[in-house]
């Protein structure tokens, strides 16, 4: 199974990457290229939207962890949303899913974006 993803800049410096398919040994590299590209722009937030992600392996988890690390270096945030139960479990069993890092609903995402927008516009 393959992986496709689509990145959109929701607000200045806030990127949502929507993934589709399987994030595994053979596809993790293409996502890492994308996250490295985004990290190069000094983003404030990268949000992974996992709604259409059916599968993840440790190679995929590693890209998420590296992205989180890269964001921390530029004082940015990593967020995740729409995790299917199995994928949620994969993050939970390594203790890598603090609740403040997961949007449980679209309205929570909207509130976050509103807050960030107020920050930007002052």
């Amino acid at each position: 199974m393959s992986l496709t993803f689509e990145t959109r800049e929701e607000l200045t410096g806030i990127f949502i990457i929507k993934l589709n398919g399987s994030l595994d040994t053979n596809t993790a590299g293409s996502l890492e290229t994308e996250t490295n590209r985004l990290l190069g722009t000094t983003p404030t937030t990268i949000i992974f939207d996992f709604e259409n992600l059916d599968y993840i392996s440790s190679a995929g988890v590693r890209v998420v962890l590296k992205t989180k690390k890269g964001l921390k270096e530029v004082s940015g945030n990593l967020m995740m949303m729409n995790l299917q139960p199995q994928i949620k479990k994969v993050f939970e069993i390594i203790n890598a899913l603090p609740s403040q890092q997961v949007f449980s609903s679209i309205s929570e995402l909207d509130r976050y974006l509103d807050k960030m927008q107020r920050k930007i516009t002052g």
Partner: peptide, 17 residues
């Protein structure tokens, strides 16, 4: 896994899973 995951060495995950 007690070390915050930003500080962890990324590796050994596959066998763990």
């Amino acid at each position: 896994f007690e070390i915050p995951f930003d500080e962890r060495k990324v590796g050994g995950l596959g066998i763990f899973y």
